[in-house]
Amino acid sequence: MKFKETPETIKKELDGLVSHLPHFQKGDGYNVPEGYFESLPSRIQDRMSSSSHSESVGLSSVLLKRVVPVVAAVLLIAGLTIGLFFMERNGAVSFADISDADMEYAYLNMHGHIDHVLVYELVLESGMSAEEILYELEVGFLFPDSDEAYEEIIEMIFDNARYFGMESRNLLSSLD
């Protein structure tokens, strides 16, 4: 027969388990501001009203903030890749012909939302490469719930960047 737990059996177990802490009171010491729980429901209701109000415009703002920059960056890189391919075929342009400004523009389109000072500091402090740090930052920023989807995109972006000879480490230092 399966043992049936009751509040009493749980309490007995807890009292017995924490035997080395005779003065262990169950208080945890956490407090809240005065009147916090009285006001919380109305603050939640306020947020519900504002979130339902902005739900229709919310999608466009999410698109603007998150999807559009990524799509723009991918399109830009694809465009540059195709352009470079044809230019190279025509023998007209070499890598040296791409200006620093073009590189910076492409880079900012990819990573414009990132705090570069933070990344720079982290490079100095952590010993990680800028790429690793960008990876970590962008995983959380773009795809909080999907590391795999992010990995695919970030790999593509960095592959493209490398194709142009853009090492994010160098780009970062050039932006300092």
Binding site: H23, F24, D28, G29, Y30, N31, V32, P33
Partner: peptide, 13 residues
């Protein structure tokens, strides 16, 4: 500022 536990409580936390 909203933590006001005793030393013991803090130690446990």
């Amino acid at each position: 500022v909203y933590y006001q536990g005793s030393e013991m409580e803090k130690q446990i936390q």
